[in-house]
Amino acid sequence: MKLFAAVALLLTLVALPARADDPFYAASVDTADRGEQAFRTSARQALARVLVRVSGSEAVLEMPEAAAALAKAAGNVSLYRYTTVGDQRVLFVQFDPDLIKGILRRSGAMYWPEQRPPVLAWLVLDGPSGRRFADPATDIELIEGLREGFSNRGVDLRLPLHDLEDQATITTETVWQKALPQLQLGSRRYGTDHVLVGRLVELSSGAILCDWLYFDSESRMTRQSRSEDLMAAVAPAVDLAVDSMAQQYGVALIDLAGTSHLIVRVEGVDNYDQYQSVSELLSSIDVIEFLQTVAIEADAVVFRLSGIDDNETLLRLLPQGSAVSVLDSSAEQQVSLRWMAP
């Protein structure tokens, strides 16, 4: 079946609209009061959090363009509201996605799209009664601190179930010895390649000593931390995992002025519903600024897009589980895909 003739009306260049309300570009910060100075301070803190989350790295805050944007953060707030949590006043601040991308683009910082894999954490505590797995019901400060730390960086934290299936593969000694083959095998059921292993010891002085291992399908890294404060002790674990992930998944935002376009040909598209599904798939990639249908064939559609100027970046940004397969990406700035869904 050929595509409906009405699709020809779509052969125009379309700017992809930003989402009106997106927590990915927002942050909640404690604020002293509703005064102007407190608002400016809180807006600056919120923008710093958003820049770190979206870029994937705290290094962005050291860049001159980001520093200049932070100085005038209050004037660039797109939405804000006050709430109260307990006795603390909290300010929710949201920024326009295009503003954030523009800062990152001018800074030369990387951009890490919102669709991110989770991190699975195996945590063992060594105490007077021996070694045990961290328990969300009793180790609330530890678990919630890690969860909040990852959430602030735009990554979800997962915890193992510690059920019979886990127990058959991973014990406290498996974690303590950092037995990588067993950890990889036992983590596979949770559907993520990104795993954090933590060994925590509370010293007689009251300090907390932590030994962290992060691994994925490509790398393995370790870090140690020690602090009197639990949150300060676990913060390096978040940095260890998220910084590594950002290096893998981050992409450079190109300057649209004078940039070339990428041509994407998708085969296996022979009806309007399939065409719409393919268009929505490409439109869901955050860094694509414009998407244009340039040709409709009997069983294929050809798109021109901007915001991405190389094949490798496009293939990296296709959502996991997408109903497409790669036919050919050898030609410069041209990719051939096949639509696999009905």
Rank of each mutant, 00 (worst) to 15 (best):
E312N: 12
E312C: 00
E267V: 06
L79Q: 14
V335H: 08
A121D: 05
G321Y: 03
E297V: 01
L142W: 09
S107E: 01
A68R: 15
L203H: 03
D193L: 11
L99D: 06
Y249S: 07
P113C: 04
A68E: 15
Q88A: 11
F303C: 04
D229C: 05
A59T: 06
F95P: 01
L282N: 01
Y272G: 02
E218H: 11
N311F: 10
W122R: 04
A59P: 00
S55P: 02
L157K: 07
F133L: 10
L9W: 05
Q334K: 15
R223A: 15
F95A: 03
F150S: 06
A331F: 07
M231H: 10
R131F: 07
P319H: 10
W212D: 10
W212R: 08
R199G: 04
A48G: 13
P17H: 06
G206I: 08
L142S: 06
Y111M: 02
D239C: 03
D21G: 08
S283R: 14
H261R: 15
G258L: 14
T41G: 07
N76E: 15
V175E: 09
D87N: 09
Q333R: 15
T84P: 01
V242R: 07
L291M: 04
R40Q: 12
D96M: 07
S129Y: 12
Y190D: 02
D166K: 08
R105Y: 00
V302L: 13
G108N: 05
S219I: 11
V50T: 03
L51P: 00
G186S: 00
G102K: 01
H194V: 05
W122E: 04
R19A: 07
I285T: 01
R106F: 03
M340G: 00
D87E: 11
F133M: 10
V287M: 03
A67S: 12
Q184F: 00
V93P: 03
Q274G: 00
F215S: 09
W122M: 05
F133Y: 07
T259G: 13
N271R: 13
Q334C: 12
G307T: 05
D87K: 11
L10E: 13
N152H: 15
R89M: 14
E144S: 15
E114L: 03
L161R: 14
V324P: 10
S204K: 14
S204P: 03
F133P: 05
L157G: 09
Y249F: 15
A5V: 05
V7I: 14
V301G: 08
A300T: 02
V201W: 12
K101N: 03
L159K: 02
T169F: 07
I208N: 06
A27R: 04
F215K: 03
D243C: 01
R304L: 14
A67E: 15
W212Y: 14
R81K: 11
F150M: 05
Y25L: 07
D30R: 15
D310W: 04
V124H: 10
Y249N: 07
M231C: 01
D96A: 12
M340K: 10
S205N: 14
D126C: 08
D193A: 13
L10K: 12
G130S: 13
E141R: 12
Q334A: 15
A134R: 06
F92A: 05
V77L: 10
Q320V: 12
P128F: 14
I140W: 02
T83D: 13
